Simulated assay, not measured.
Amino acid sequence: MQPRAVDAAGVAHEMAGTGARIVSLVPSITELLFALGLDRQIVGRTGFCVHPRDKVRQVPKVGGTKAIKLDAIRALRPTHLIVNIDENERETVEQLRAFVPHIVVTHPQTPQDNLALYALLGAIFDRAQEARRLAEALEGRLREAAAHEFAAQNVLYLIWREPWMTVARDTYIAAMLRLVNWHTLPDVQGGAAGAARYPSFDFDHAPWLDAVDRILLSSEPYRFTEAHCIALKRDPRLAGKRIELIDGEMVSWYGVRAIEGIGYLQRQAAAA
C-alpha cells in the first residue's frame, strides 16, 4: 500500500493515478504544479493563475479565487482540487466536496513551509524526485539568506488603498520579509483575538508610523504604480521615509516562486 500524504486540513491522501484531473484554485499552486511536470493533468485554473504564461493559456478558467464557477468545475470532472485556506472561501470549498473526490488543502505560512508543500504534492501526484529538486533549490536560497547580515528595517507593506491595508506579522508575506531582516509594522498578529491578518489603518491614527523606515507598495492584490509612490512622497506625514514599489508575486507567492522570491528580496535589501 502506498504511503499517504497529509494536507493542511489533516486529511491523508493516497497517491493519485496517471489519470488524475487537477483543478487549481490557487495561482501560486498552479505555477508549482507545472514546475512539478504535471502539465497534462491540469484541467482547470482561476483567471488569476497567470504563470507560467505560455502554458496556462491552454488551461480552462473556472472563475476567480473567490468568485468560483461551480458548474465550470463540475464540467471538467476533476479528481483533485487544490485550495488554500487564505485564498479560497470555506463555503465554496464545501460545495465543491459534493462532486470532487479529493480536495487538497494547503496553507504555507512561512518560506520554510514550502518544503512540506513540495513534498505533499510530489507524494500525491508521483513527482517525488521533482519535489526534491525544488526543495534542494529552496534550501540553498534559505541558507544564503541566513548567512547574510542584513540591516534591520521596519517596513510598512501596503496591499490596498481606500482603505489602506497592510499585513500582520504572522502572514507568509511578513515571514518572507523577515528573511532579509525587514520587520512589518504595525506589530500585530492576525491570529490574535479580534485581529485581522490583513488589517486596515489610517495614516492619521497610526502611532507606530514614526518607527517605519521603508514603505513598500505591492503590485498585488492592488496594483500600486509609480504615481502612488510620488503621491505618498509628497505627504508630510511620511517625510524622510523610503517609499518604493515591490513585486508582490515575489513576496507573496509560495510554491516554486519562493525560490526566486528569496533571491529577489536579497537583492532589494542589498540595494538599500
Rank of each mutant, 00 (worst) to 15 (best):
L177H: 04
D126C: 00
P207Q: 09
S200Q: 14
F150W: 02
V180L: 00
Y172W: 09
V104S: 09
P199F: 06
H205I: 06
Y172G: 11
L185D: 12
Q153N: 04
L209G: 07
L158V: 06
H205W: 02
P78I: 00
V93R: 12
P207W: 07
A192S: 14
F201I: 07
A119Y: 00
I73C: 10
H183C: 02
L96K: 02
N114C: 10
D71C: 04
R74P: 03
L185K: 13
R90T: 06
D126E: 05
A206Y: 05
A174R: 08
L142G: 09
A192W: 03
P163N: 09
A146Y: 00
L120K: 07
R97K: 12
Q153W: 03
P199A: 08
N88D: 10
Q189E: 14
V100E: 05
L179M: 11
E94G: 02
L142P: 12
R90H: 13
D113E: 07
T171M: 09
F201R: 05
R141G: 06
L177T: 02
V105E: 15
P207L: 11
V155A: 01
E87T: 09
L156I: 03
R132S: 11
D113Y: 06
Q189P: 00
L158K: 09
L142C: 10
I173H: 08
A168V: 02
D204C: 05
I82V: 15
E139Y: 01
H205V: 12
N181I: 00
I173Y: 04
A168M: 11
V167R: 11
D187R: 15
P186G: 10
W160I: 11
G122S: 00
R141F: 01
F203N: 07
F125M: 02
Y118R: 08
L96S: 04
L156Y: 01
D202E: 13
A168N: 06
Q153A: 11
R77S: 13
T92K: 13
N84K: 14
A147V: 01
A192T: 03
M176L: 09
R197E: 08
R90S: 10
L142S: 13
V93E: 09
H107L: 08
G190S: 10
T92L: 03
L121Y: 00
M165V: 10
A116D: 14
G190C: 06
A196M: 12
V100R: 04
A196Q: 15
P111G: 10
A131K: 00
D170W: 04
I85A: 15
A174E: 11
H148R: 15
G191R: 08
A75F: 06
A75E: 15
T110L: 11
D126W: 00
L209E: 04
N84R: 11
D187G: 05
H80W: 03
Q95N: 13
T171R: 06
L185Q: 14
F203I: 14
A174V: 08
P207A: 10
L96N: 07
F201P: 07
Q95R: 14
Q95S: 09
Y198P: 08
P186Y: 01
D86A: 13
I73Y: 05
W160V: 10
W164T: 07
Q153M: 08
D187V: 06
Q129E: 13
R133W: 05
G122D: 00
A131Q: 03
H107D: 15
N84H: 14
E162G: 07
H183V: 03
E149D: 14
Q189Y: 12
T106N: 10
E89N: 12
P108M: 05
R97M: 00
H80I: 04
L134P: 06
G140L: 12
V93M: 04
A131V: 00
P186C: 06
